[in-house]
C-alpha cells in the first residue's frame, strides 16, 4: 500500500482520527506550555497553598502553591518524551534482532532468543530499579531502563511474525528468482511486519508511560525539581482524600494518554491489514 492510500484511509476512519486528534492536542499543549500558562512549573507561592480548582488555577495548587495545570503540561512533556523515544528505540532494536533471529536461525537465533529470555525472566520493575540505582534517577537512565525492559518481548513477537512470513511462497519465489538476503528482509519481511511493529509500538507506549509513572511515584524515577505525571501523583497521594484533584488531574492525564495510544494502535492495525480493508 502506498503512503498516500494509507493516509486517505486513516483520515476516513474515525477510530484513527479521534485518538490521533487527542494525542496531537496533548502534544501541542505540552510543546506550547509556556505560551498557554502564565505560571512557572517550579515557582512556589506559599500564600496560595492547596487551593481548590478556581479561576486562575483550574486544577488548583499543590502543597507548595504551584499551579497544578501548569505542572501537568510540563509533566506531560516528560511523559511524552518517555512514551516516544525509549519505546521507539526498544521497538527498533527488538525488531532488528527478531528478524535476524528468524532469518538466520541456528546459533544467531539461539543467542538472541536466550538473551531475550534472560531479560524477560527478570521482573521489569526490578530491572528498572537496578538500572536507576546504578545510574541515578535521571531522564537518560529511565530511557535505558525502559529499553532494557521492552526490547525482549518485541524481539520475541517480531521473530514469531517474521518466521510466519518466511514460510510464505513469496519468500521462496524471491529466493528462486535470486533476490538477495538483505532485499528479502527489506522488501518482503519488513513491510509485512509493519502492522505488528505499529501495534507493538503503540502497545508499548502506554506501558512506558505507566512504568515511568510507577518509578517516579516510588521516588526513583524522575527527580524534583523536574516534574512528571507519575511524580505528581506520587507526591500528592498524602492529600488523596482531602484534595483529590491533586492526584486525579495527573492520573487522568496518564489515563487519557495511555488509552488514546491503545485505541490508535488497534485502529491502525485494522487500517494496515489489507485483508480487513474494504476493497
Amino acid at each position: 500500500m502506498g503512503m498516500n492510500d494509507f493516509w486517505k484511509l486513516c483520515i476516513k476512519n474515525k477510530s484513527v482520527t479521534v485518538p490521533a486528534i487527542i494525542i496531537v492536542s496533548i502534544m501541542l499543549l505540552a510543546v506550547f506550555a509556556p505560551m498557554i500558562t502564565q505560571y512557572d512549573e517550579t515557582r512556589q507561592d506559599l500564600l496560595m497553598r492547596l487551593v481548590p480548582p478556581q479561576s486562575g488555577h483550574i486544577f488548583g495548587t499543590d502543597e507548595l502553591g504551584r499551579d497544578v495545570f501548569t505542572r501537568i503540561l510540563y509533566g506531560t512533556r516528560i511523559s511524552l518524551s518517555i512514551a516516544l523515544f525509549p519505546t521507539a528505540i526498544a521497538v527498533a532494536v527488538g525488531t532488528a534482532l527478531g528478524i535476524l533471529s528468524a532469518y538466520f536461525g541456528k546459533w544467531a537465533d539461539f543467542a538472541i532468543m536466550r538473551l531475550a529470555d534472560i531479560m524477560l525472566s527478570i521482573p521489569g520493575m526490578l530491572l528498572a530499579m537496578v538500572v536507576l540505582y546504578t545510574f541515578g534517577g535521571s531522564l537518560s537512565s529511565v530511557y535505558i531502563a525502559l529499553v532494557l525492559m521492552e526490547w525482549g518481548s518485541v524481539a520475541r513477537v517480531t521473530r514469531a511474525a517474521a518466521e510466519g512470513i518466511l514460510e510464505n511462497d513469496y519468500v521462496l519465489a524471491a529466493r528462486a528468482m535470486g533476490v538477495r538476503g538483505y532485499a528479502i528482509i527489506f522488501r518482503h519481511i519488513l513491510p509485512n511486519l509493519i502492522p505488528s511493529i505499529i501495534v507493538l509500538f503503540t502497545v508499548n507506549i502506554p506501558s512506558s508511560i505507566l512504568a515511568e509513572s510507577a518509578l517516579s511515584f516510588l521516588g526513583i524515577g524522575i527527580q524534583p525539581p523536574k516534574v512528571s505525571l507519575g511524580l505528581m501523583a506520587g507526591t500528592s497521594k498524602q492529600f488523596l482524600f482531602q484534595m483529590p484533584w491533586l492526584s486525579l488531574a495527573p492520573a487522568g492525564m496518564i489515563m487519557l494518554l495511555s488509552l488514546s495510544f491503545n485505541f490508535l494502535g488497534d485502529a491502525l492495525r485494522d487500517v494496515l491489514d489489507p485483508k480487513r480493508r474494504a476493497v
Partner: peptide, 12 residues
C-alpha cells in the same frame, strides 16, 4: 507455485 494466495506478497 501451488498456492496462488501465499506466492504473491500481499503488500506489493
Amino acid at each position: 507455485f501451488q498456492d496462488p494466495a501465499s506466492s504473491l506478497d500481499p503488500r506489493m
